[in-house]
Amino acid sequence: MKKLSISAFVFAGLWALGPALAQDVPKVDAKRLEEVTKAMWPKTPEGWEKRISYDETQAVCSQFRNDLPQAEFDKVKARELATIKLPADGNVLGDWKSGRRFANDGRGGTFTDRPMTNGANCYACHQMDRFELSYGTLGPSLVNYGKDRKYAPEEARAAYAKIYNSMAVMPCSTMPRFGYHGFLTEEQIKDLTAFLFDPESPVNK
């Protein structure tokens, strides 16, 4: 079973890269690949014990170059959906001003950072407040996000869930699973959801 999936992933990978690269490239021996990665990262850094290093979903997304066959897609979606924890009181909207700050903050979580409250760094990939010109383009623009959704409470809950675990919505999404990994706290995700959904937020102006 394990062997099957690995040869499938090697095949999928070579195929995805096209014939120019696939020629003459041998399939990777899974054991050898594991040896090499183990030697790159031989031990868990102190304080990182709770961090996920390589889970089942990451493995399958890597194997299929993020383009999953339907059966795998459904499996990942169900697995990731089960990890989402909404706030106990059902309120997904925090303080949009604080959300604005986190959205603009790219610090935290690297091996040269001290433990700190991690920034969400949304602008690395998304346009949000249209007057913030330094935004990336890996993700879609989120300008008018709440307004376009008529500030509907169910849409706000969906946004909270997407920030918490993007792969429950889109398996192998490029976006990190911020809540699942514990990269952001519940409070932070609420603040970010408010940044998207508060009518006063510059995202909707």
């Binding site: 990777v28 990665t37 290093s53 390589y54 990451q58 890597s62 990190p176």
Partner: peptide, 22 residues
């Protein structure tokens, strides 16, 4: 060399860690 290339290619697409990045 071919093996190293293939491993490098796998590493390029290997998603892992705190932000699921490759």
């Amino acid at each position: 060399e071919k093996e190293a290339f293939a491993i490098g290619q796998e590493l390029f697409f290997r998603r892992s860690d705190f932000m699921d990045f490759s």
